[in-house]
Amino acid sequence: MAAFLLGRLASRLVLAVLAASLAYALAAAALDPRAGFEGRAPRPPEAVVDARLTALNLNDRTPLADRYLVWAEGVVHGDFGHTSDGEAVNAELWRRLGVSFRLLFLGAVLGSVLGVLLGAYAAVRRGRTADRLISLGSYLLLAVPVFVLAVLLQIAASRANRAMGVQAFVWVGEATPGASDGVIGGLADRARHLLLPTVTIALTQLGLYCRYQRAMMLDVLHADFVRTARAKGLRRRSALLRHGLRVALTPVTTYFVYAFGLLLLGGIHTEKIFGWHGAGEWLVDSVARGDVNVVAAIVCVAVCGVVLAGLISDVLQGVLDPRVRAAE
């Protein structure tokens, strides 16, 4: 098991380093920070712009390879450079990652776990009413993009607020500015702000996992080993739970990476719509500003996230399926 993981880790690390470098190269080649400086009024003299850009390692007149080396050296030491305003990327990056994490974590966990359970249940009840309802629901959820779902939830919440006459639902930002009712009140306020975004994220992930888990579970419904388990005297439901579910879970772990990519994407929209100042929002704004170092840093973190997701999926697979462990 340890050797198996080590092997996967090594090959994924190599991929991560290459992907991060590629990300920097793309950002540096595609974005145009110079335009931002030249667009200022009054327009600074060219020499000043050049000097400023060079100081920030953003000068497009320096060869890309040289800029890359400077950037890479910084990253190796844990420093992602400076924004085009001259601020350190690191501090802001960690703060915003925290925001994004608080936004995504709960929704992702809830969505995937519930999705897996619902999908497995639907498969066991195949063809019955419960299955039809769950399947229909997952189809609808998958057809509604995050940015539509979020807006729909907001509209529904504001209707509910109006109907009840109190601000039961709040959704702009992470917390109500200025409101401080001590620690407990603060936490409650945060939880209220978290509700709608979490539901948004959870629902999108739920649809995804539910459909996939249902399909995988259907595959084992008639598997020979489930029949053997019943021949031993297990009832259909316990045979499916004790023998089928675990086998049907393994392929879902490989799906984890794909779902994680969609989570990141959903995160950008959710942050924008709910006004959370997270990394996704920063990325979009920085792309518009041509802020190479910020963009590269965020893509780097995302690459690491994907690699980590892959690693988690490896661990889960190794734990769930002895055949995977043996394959290495």
Binding site: A19, A23, G261, L265, A288, G290, V306
Partner: peptide, 19 residues
């Protein structure tokens, strides 16, 4: 293919879109 999967596609598209 692995390399391109690790590099989140949507982010790259976002990055290149302004061009």
């Amino acid at each position: 293919v692995d390399l391109l999967i690790v590099l989140p596609p949507f982010l790259v598209v976002v990055l290149l879109a302004p061009r």
